[in-house]
Computed example of a mutant assay.
Amino acid sequence: MAGRGGTASGRPTVKDVAELAGVSTATVSFVLSGKGGVSPQRVQRVQDAAKQLGYQGNKAARALRTGSTHSIVVIVPDITNPFYGEVVRGIDAVAQAAGADVLLCNANSDVERERQYLTRFAHSDVAGIIYSPMSVTTAQDPEVRRAVAAGPPLVLVDEPLPDFGNASIGVDNDDGARQVARHFADLGCTTPAVINGPPDMPTSAVRANAFVDEAAKLGLPVDDRVAFAPIRTLQGITEGLNMLQANPAVDCLFAGDDLLAALLMSELVKLGRSVPEELAICGFDDIDWAPLLRPTLSSIHQPKMELGSKACELLLVSPELRGAFHAEVLPVTLVVRDSSAGFRGHAPPARDT
């Protein structure tokens, strides 16, 4: 049993503070949340009792209720995606060092939930919002745009959206896709294909277009072998498999996301396609378990934690965010692993550098 001084874990509670101060628990909550309507004498008694007991309270819960200005709201499409987990780690590291709370909102691939998060916190008193969009649909909603324009600073991560928010931090998607095309050309591949995320996502379009353009320059026309589909869904896998089955000559595949690449690679092996001997595959993101797959997955490495930390630094250190839109683009690098390095379809031709 826990008496005064805390719960069974030893931490003091609101009830303990109320008993020591001789007030109700409601009064304690009002005082500690900064609300008015309490006499100065009672405020002092509550503060003294909280200090004596070492009461800290639950800052995260209090921020959710009050919209504390020490809170940073982070909205991501799907927290189960390892890419977003690393981004959030970077955000949290900077926020913790600055004494700020991180309120993580998982849209769970639901556009309506994403819209609700944005409008709710744009009307609150949080320090800022870090937002990684799942599509342009939400940013085009008039209600969302009005709320964001009048709300706290907003930094976009991974997906730059025109005329939305105060800043963006992303990577050089164009260069990353071109690196993949050059890699396939060096391997001696002749018939490339692309499977990417939703076509209305800026990064999906940039990656697909850059790959197609660079491949064409290298004498590897992609033609109509481009598929866009929701990432990491059955529809996405179906779209990719249908395209490959309709084009059996395809010998290299660029997937715009590591999860999509991994799922397709698994299904192709089940269907008897030899990866990488007959079909080279490369993804994008270089998530932590890309080296653990069999075959290990070649991928474009994104500095995921740095994306998060820089986004948080922009909110906490850059009061000028209310001025002109600020954008940063980080470099990416190709990490070659077995899923492409083991390609044996052709002898590599000479290529001008």
Rank of each mutant, 00 (worst) to 15 (best):
A177K: 05
D141H: 15
T69E: 03
A2E: 15
R62K: 10
D288N: 14
A208D: 01
P12L: 13
N209F: 12
E313M: 05
V87L: 07
P12V: 14
L292A: 14
G323Q: 09
S24W: 09
T296A: 14
V126L: 12
A205F: 07
P331G: 11
V250L: 02
R65D: 06
P349T: 04
V14I: 15
I281F: 01
T119R: 13
V171E: 03
Q52Y: 11
L154G: 07
S340M: 10
S339A: 12
G128Q: 00
A262R: 06
I75P: 04
V87R: 00
L244Y: 08
R45S: 10
E86N: 03
P77M: 12
R351L: 09
G256E: 02
I237A: 11
T137Y: 10
T25Q: 13
S318R: 14
P276K: 07
R42V: 12
G323L: 11
A21I: 07
A49W: 03
L220E: 03
I287K: 02
F164Y: 06
G188L: 03
P153F: 02
G85P: 04
T66I: 08
A50K: 03
S29L: 11
S33K: 12
E277N: 09
M201P: 04
S309N: 00
A350V: 13
I129A: 00
G90S: 02
L32K: 07
M201W: 14
A261Y: 06
V155P: 03
A261D: 06
E277C: 04
G54K: 02
R42G: 06
L293D: 02
A8R: 11
A21W: 13
P291L: 10
G6L: 05
D285E: 04
G345E: 03
M305G: 08
V144H: 04
